[in-house]
Design a protein around this nucleic acid. Structure first.
Length: 338
RNA sequence: CCGCUCUUAGCUCAGCCUGGUAGAGCAGUCGACUGUAGAUCGACUUGUCCCCCGUUCAAAUCGGGGAGAGCGGACCA
């Protein structure tokens, strides 16, 4: 069905600089990131995650980038942001820690290299005096308006709390306290990272470069960002059947660039999730329609979809199978943890 | 502490004044049509009306109590 490349080479991935910058929505700044890419060995990059019991494609997209960075020789730090989760009303520290451990196990199952990944709990340093005082200094440097623009989106109807504006300030400080060379996040983290780059120097620290991954569009509509709610997103908890059903019902016009602001989520999943992990994708196709097809790159597949050579229904079958293979280890781990 | 407002379908809300066990839009589900999805037609589903007590033949609606949420309460004008 698909050929795993995670261990060895990788079709387009031998070059570290290419690994670091591929499939990225934005590098801030590209000069700084290029400088890093020129000598990636031992450099530290991170993504912060609010603990979640089940990983979904959103998590996996940044995880793919972390895997890229590891293969390029960098050290990876995964922040299990328990204090952030607490600030976001996600429960007691005990509950949060439990979901964080599940999250960690899933990341490892997904393919992060255990040797080169440092999992850090936010609470292990964010409650120290130095951190607290620096946080207050940052609060002093930051207008309420600015912090509000950087804060995470509120859950429907929720009213903003002071905790919500402290949240992004802590994200900024984390970049310093985790001793990083690079901050990674979805493009939705852009404002936070910009805040960090602007304010860290005010405290006498160095601004770090950032890499922002794209965000996959909503599966069923192709609009905006895919919702992370269960039942809508694709997650480690999906069975093979659920996966097939979700992918089959996905919006998929035979083009890379649908009308208006719409995206083609099926192609996006191939581009950001499948091809980065597999050297080849085999599309099984009934003889009636011409028999199986093989693709070694996203470009080839997308081109065939646009030309009509590859029918969306067949593409979906291959996508579901590939995603299933990617998710299987995490799914097994979840079952084991039950 | 005081005052005002809000609480009805998954979501946004209407209905309350002038009691008769509930509606719209969106979402969702299912068919038709396309070898996917969408679009387009066609059909359909959904509710402790925040809780308790009371008035009444009858309460989402009236009265009392309670809970949750939001906003406001210097000065100036």
């Amino acid at each position: 069905m698909t050929t795993d490349t995670a261990g060895s080479e990788g079709s387009s991935g031998a070059d570290p600089a290419e690994l670091i910058t591929r499939n990225v929505a934005e590098a801030v700044t590209s000069e700084e990131v290029e400088a890093l890419a020129a000598d990636p060995a031992g450099k530290r990059a991170y993504v912060g995650y609010e603990p979640s019991g089940v990983l979904h494609v959103g998590h996996l997209l940044t995880a793919n980038k972390l895997i890229d960075l590891q293969r390029a020789g960098m050290e990876v730090v995964v922040l299990l942001a328990d204090v952030h989760a607490y600030l976001n009303g996600k429960g007691s520290f005990e509950e949060i820690r439990e979901t964080a451990e599940r999250m960690k196990a899933q990341f490892l199952a997904y393919g992060l290299d255990e040797e080169n990944t440092e999992f850090v709990y936010g609470s292990s340093y964010q409650l120290e005096e130095d951190y607290g005082l620096d946080l207050h200094a940052l609060e002093l440097e930051t207008s309420l308006n600015r912090a509000q623009r950087a804060m995470a989106e509120l859950q429907g109807g929720e009213t903003p709390r002071v905790s919500h504006v402290v949240y992004p300030l802590m994200q900024a400080l984390d970049i310093e306290y985790l001793d990083l060379d690079l901050a990674v996040g979805g493009i939705d983290q852009r404002k936070v990272h910009m805040l960090a780059r602007e304010t860290l120097p005010e405290l006498g620290y160095e601004a770090r470069p950032c890499l922002h991954t794209p965000i996959v569009a909503d599966l069923t509509t192709g609009e905006g960002k895919m919702s992370s709610s269960a039942g809508v997103t694709i997650s480690m908890a999906d069975s093979t059947e659920e996966l097939a059903e979700k992918v089959n019902s996905a919006f998929c016009p035979p083009t890379r660039d649908p009308e208006g602001d719409l995206e083609n989520p099926v192609l996006e999943l191939f581009e950001y999730h499948v091809f980065p992990r597999f050297a080849e994708v085999v599309v099984e196709r009934p003889e009636e329609y011409g028999g199986d097809l093989e693709y070694g790159s996203y470009e080839d597949l997308a081109a065939d979809l646009e030309s009509g050579e590859l029918h969306p229904a067949d593409a979906k079958g291959a996508l579901a199978a590939s995603l299933d293979e990617l998710i299987e280890p995490g799914r097994a781990k979840l079952r084991e943890l039950e």
